[in-house]
Amino acid sequence: KVILLEDVKGLGKKGDVVEVKDGYARNFLIPQGLAVEATKGNLKEL
């Protein structure tokens, strides 16, 4: 699961917690600054 930092077409809006494949999160969303891993600490910051 990841928390979206920006609106991502076809996935969700900023602040949404979405389930995506590990590779998509690690190789695209997180490096592009579009999402962060949905850890307990990150979820509390919402």
Rank of each mutant, 00 (worst) to 15 (best):
K1R: 12
K1E: 06
K1M: 08
K1C: 11
K1P: 07
K1Y: 07
K1T: 11
K1L: 10
K1S: 13
K1W: 13
K1D: 05
K1Q: 13
V2F: 11
V2I: 11
V2S: 01
V2T: 02
V2D: 00
V2Y: 10
V2N: 01
V2H: 04
I3E: 05
I3D: 01
I3C: 05
I3A: 04
I3K: 06
I3L: 10
I3V: 10
I3Q: 07
L4Y: 00
L4I: 02
L4Q: 00
L4K: 00
L4P: 00
L4E: 00
L4F: 01
L5F: 03
L5G: 01
L5D: 01
L5N: 04
L5P: 01
L5Y: 03
E6S: 13
E6Y: 11
E6I: 12
E6K: 12
E6C: 10
E6V: 13
E6W: 09
E6D: 11
E6R: 12
D7C: 12
D7H: 09
D7K: 05
D7Y: 09
D7E: 11
D7V: 05
V8P: 00
V8I: 10
V8E: 01
V8Q: 03
V8F: 08
V8M: 09
V8K: 02
V8L: 08
K9F: 12
K9V: 14
K9T: 12
K9E: 12
K9W: 10
K9H: 13
K9C: 10
K9N: 12
K9D: 09
K9A: 14
K9L: 13
K9Y: 14
G10Y: 09
G10R: 06
G10P: 04
G10F: 08
G10S: 07
G10H: 09
G10Q: 05
G10M: 06
G10V: 03
G10T: 05
L11T: 04
L11Q: 02
L11G: 01
L11K: 02
L11P: 00
L11A: 03
L11R: 02
L11W: 05
L11V: 12
L11Y: 07
L11I: 11
G12T: 01
G12W: 00
G12S: 01
G12M: 00
G12R: 00
G12N: 00
G12H: 00
G12C: 01
G12E: 00
G12I: 00
G12Y: 00
K13P: 02
K13F: 10
K13T: 08
K13W: 09
K13L: 10
K13N: 10
K13C: 12
K14P: 03
K14A: 10
K14H: 04
K14N: 04
K14Q: 11
K14M: 07
K14W: 03
K14T: 08
K14I: 08
K14S: 07
K14V: 07
G15N: 08
G15Q: 02
G15S: 04
G15Y: 09
G15T: 02
G15R: 03
G15C: 09
G15E: 02
G15F: 10
G15H: 08
G15K: 03
G15W: 11
D16M: 10
D16W: 09
D16T: 11
D16N: 06
D16V: 05
D16C: 10
D16G: 04
D16E: 11
D16P: 00
D16S: 09
D16F: 06
V17G: 03
V17S: 05
V17P: 02
V17K: 05
V17N: 04
V17W: 08
V17F: 07
V17M: 09
V18N: 01
V18T: 03
V18D: 00
V18C: 06
V18P: 01
V18A: 04
V18F: 04
E19N: 11
E19M: 13
E19A: 11
E19I: 13
E19G: 09
E19R: 09
E19V: 13
E19F: 14
E19Q: 14
E19P: 09
E19K: 11
V20Q: 02
V20L: 05
V20D: 07
V20K: 00
V20I: 09
V20W: 01
V20S: 03
V20E: 02
V20T: 07
V20Y: 02
K21C: 13
K21T: 13
K21R: 11
K21L: 14
K21D: 09
K21S: 14
K21Q: 12
K21F: 13
K21Y: 10
K21M: 13
K21W: 10
D22K: 08
D22Y: 08
D22A: 11
D22N: 09
D22M: 07
D22W: 08
D22E: 12
D22F: 08
G23C: 14
G23P: 11
G23H: 14
G23K: 11
G23Y: 10
G23L: 08
G23V: 10
G23A: 14
G23M: 12
G23Q: 12
G23I: 12
Y24Q: 04
Y24G: 02
Y24T: 05
Y24F: 13
Y24L: 09
Y24N: 03
Y24V: 09
Y24S: 04
A25L: 11
A25T: 05
A25M: 15
A25Q: 04
A25W: 05
A25E: 05
A25C: 08
A25V: 06
R26N: 13
R26M: 11
R26V: 11
R26Y: 11
R26S: 11
R26A: 12
R26H: 12
R26F: 12
R26T: 12
R26D: 14
R26G: 11
R26L: 12
R26C: 08
N27A: 10
N27L: 10
N27H: 11
N27I: 05
N27W: 07
N27R: 10
N27E: 13
F28H: 13
F28P: 03
F28R: 06
F28Q: 12
F28L: 13
F28S: 10
F28V: 14
F28K: 06
L29V: 01
L29M: 02
L29G: 01
L29Q: 01
L29K: 00
L29T: 01
L29P: 04
L29A: 01
L29H: 01
L29N: 00
L29Y: 02
L29C: 03
I30T: 03
I30Q: 02
I30G: 04
I30S: 02
I30F: 12
I30L: 07
I30D: 05
I30R: 01
I30K: 03
P31K: 14
P31L: 14
P31A: 15
P31T: 15
P31S: 15
P31H: 14
P31Y: 13
P31M: 15
P31W: 13
P31C: 13
P31R: 12
Q32V: 07
Q32K: 12
Q32C: 15
Q32G: 10
Q32D: 10
Q32W: 08
Q32E: 14
Q32N: 13
Q32H: 11
Q32R: 08
Q32S: 13
Q32P: 02
Q32F: 10
G33F: 07
G33H: 07
G33M: 07
G33R: 07
G33Y: 05
G33L: 06
L34Y: 05
L34K: 11
L34C: 06
L34F: 08
L34Q: 06
L34R: 05
L34H: 04
L34V: 10
L34M: 11
L34D: 02
L34S: 04
L34E: 02
L34P: 01
A35S: 02
A35C: 04
A35H: 00
A35I: 02
A35Q: 01
A35N: 00
A35R: 00
A35F: 01
A35D: 01
A35L: 01
A35Y: 01
V36A: 12
V36N: 04
V36M: 10
V36C: 10
V36D: 04
V36Q: 10
V36L: 09
V36I: 12
V36P: 01
V36G: 03
V36H: 05
E37H: 10
E37W: 12
E37D: 10
E37G: 06
E37T: 09
E37P: 13
E37S: 09
E37V: 13
E37I: 14
E37Y: 15
E37R: 09
E37A: 13
E37L: 13
E37C: 13
A38H: 09
A38R: 03
A38Y: 12
A38T: 09
A38D: 07
A38Q: 07
A38W: 08
T39V: 08
T39Y: 04
T39F: 04
T39A: 06
T39K: 06
T39P: 11
T39E: 06
T39I: 06
T39H: 07
T39D: 07
T39L: 07
K40S: 11
K40T: 14
K40C: 14
K40Q: 15
K40I: 15
K40N: 13
K40R: 06
K40F: 14
G41T: 15
G41F: 02
G41E: 15
G41M: 07
G41Y: 01
N42V: 06
N42I: 06
N42A: 11
N42K: 07
N42Q: 08
N42Y: 03
N42G: 07
N42R: 12
N42E: 07
N42P: 06
N42S: 08
L43C: 15
L43D: 15
L43K: 08
L43P: 04
L43I: 08
L43M: 05
L43E: 15
L43Y: 05
L43G: 08
L43Q: 04
K44P: 15
K44Q: 14
K44I: 14
K44H: 15
K44F: 03
K44Y: 02
K44G: 15
K44N: 15
K44D: 15
E45I: 06
E45Y: 04
E45A: 05
E45L: 03
E45W: 05
E45S: 09
E45H: 10
E45K: 06
E45F: 03
E45D: 15
L46C: 15
L46W: 02
L46N: 15
L46S: 15
L46Q: 15
L46M: 13
